[in-house]
Design a protein around this nucleic acid. Structure first.
Lengths: 139, 139
DNA sequence: TTACTTGCAAATGCTTTGCGAGCCG
DNA sequence: CGGCTCGCAAAGCATTTGCAAGTAA
């Protein structure tokens, strides 16, 4: 598993106590369906480890991590922004509309069709967003 | 072209002057690349026709139209919500990252792959979001 | 030391809502 | 008439920011 704290240090980021706390939380949650925490969840978990941490610091830190390419931000349909550790390979998301859990997938076929569509419309594909929203079958 | 005013009347919505103004504006913009207006643009155009209209009314009206299935709301990566008249067939969007213009497309192949992916993950596909962000080639 | 960080509270930007006045059917 | 709408201003929410005090390197 990726260790955000280490990556941040390697990138020369000054790692304060608060930043270590936040990096650890995102690292711990990463990869699990219940990962992709929003700022509020990170703030709640951070408060358990450091009762003085401010939510403003969480906002500033996730923004910083994002700018340094350490984490990635997603805006699913539930309003608040959610974050996950950066990964080597791109992937898209399937969101469980009942639990909010997030599953990752990637499909090269879709990717190439996307490029083709953009090309046909006269565009260079710069970015994309693909999210599937689903309900779990036979729970 | 779809006429929102007519659709609203058919659905039994009380069409006040403000609602007619807003329906007409969305109808006029519909289908064009510069369509998909946000609330502020609708408000500005509405103000030209009715200088007393309130932005609160625009918010209330687009929400009402959306609830009645007359228009559809999209949240692209630019923050504000954007609206378009409902259409018979589903489609996805390519957004010009420089102008904000929106182009529509649909691709049945992608759709079937999406269903397959959801199925493999144990989900029934309820909704999806596919947006391409591109830069115009050789302008 | 010294520039970078933090906590706090105030300020955003977009959207919603309470209220009293006004309008549609 | 009577309930639905409207304009206005205040309230909400998630997020950002100014400032003075605190801290990592």
């Amino acid at each position: 598993m990726i260790d955000l704290k280490k990556i941040c240090l390697d990138k020369g980021l000054r790692m304060t106590g608060q930043r270590i706390t936040i990096a650890d939380i995102i690292t711990e949650l990463g990869g699990h369906p219940a990962g992709h925490p929003d700022v509020n969840l990170i703030y709640l978990k951070a408060s358990e480890k450091d009762k003085n941490i401010s939510i403003a610091t969480v906002y500033r830190t996730v923004k910083l991590f994002e700018e340094y390419g350490v984490i990635e931000k997603h805006d699913f349909k539930d309003g608040r922004s959610r974050y996950e550790p950066i990964q080597e390979s791109n992937h898209d998301h399937l969101i469980d509309i009942e639990s909010g859990d997030v599953y990752e997938f990637s499909n090269s076929e879709i990717e190439s069709i996307q490029k083709k569509i953009a090309d046909e419309l006269g565009f260079e594909l710069v970015d994309h967003r693909l999210e599937l929203y689903g309900k779990k079958i036979n729970k």
